[in-house]
Amino acid sequence: MTKTHPTNATNNSSIIAPAATTATTRKIPSFSFEAYLSEKADKVNRALDEAIPLQKPMKIHQAMRYSLLAGGKRVRPILCLAACSLVGGDDATAMPIACAVEMIHTMSLIHDDLPCMDNDDLRRGRPTNHKVFGEDTAVLAGDALLSLAFNHVAEKTKNVEHCRVVRAIAELALAIGSEGLVAGQIVDLDSEGEKISLNELEYIHVHKTSMLLEAAAVCGGILGGGESTEVESLRKYARCIGLLFQVVDDILDVTKSSEQLGKTAGKDLATEKATYPRLMGLAKAREFAGELARKAVDELSHFDALKAAPLYHLAGYLATRQN
Rank of each mutant, 00 (worst) to 15 (best):
L145F: 01
D112C: 00
V75H: 00
Q55W: 03
R321S: 09
V182F: 00
A82W: 07
L145C: 05
T137M: 14
G290P: 06
E202H: 13
T10D: 14
A144L: 03
T22Q: 03
L189D: 00
N119D: 15
I204T: 02
E230K: 05
E287N: 12
R167Y: 01
H152Y: 15
S233L: 13
E171F: 00
H61V: 04
R126H: 12
N199C: 02
P57E: 14
A305F: 04
P53G: 10
S178T: 13
A283L: 10
S191R: 03
A63W: 09
I52V: 15
L148Q: 14
S147C: 08
S257F: 08
S197G: 09
H207D: 00
L86N: 10
N151M: 09
N159R: 11
I28K: 06
E214K: 03
A308N: 11
S228I: 12
S38C: 02
D118K: 02
G125D: 06
L292H: 10
P18F: 08
E192A: 03
L114M: 13
I186A: 01
V248H: 02
R124L: 05
K208L: 01
F133H: 07
K267D: 04
R124D: 04
D249W: 05
T4Q: 12
G71C: 05
L68V: 11
C163K: 13
F33V: 11
S32N: 15
N151A: 11
R46L: 12
T229F: 05
L311I: 10
V160M: 06
A100N: 04
E161G: 03
Q185Y: 00
A83G: 09
P53H: 13
M58I: 15
A216H: 05
A94Y: 11
F303T: 10
A154S: 14
Q322T: 15
L189Q: 10
G242A: 03
T24Q: 09
I251C: 08
L198H: 07
T320Q: 15
P96L: 08
L201H: 06
L306N: 12
A47Q: 11
R76Q: 06
H130W: 07
V132S: 07
F31S: 07
E194I: 04
A173C: 08
D268I: 12
A216F: 03
K73E: 07
A82P: 06
G193W: 08
L198W: 01
A215S: 14
I78T: 14
Q185F: 00
P6I: 05
N8W: 07
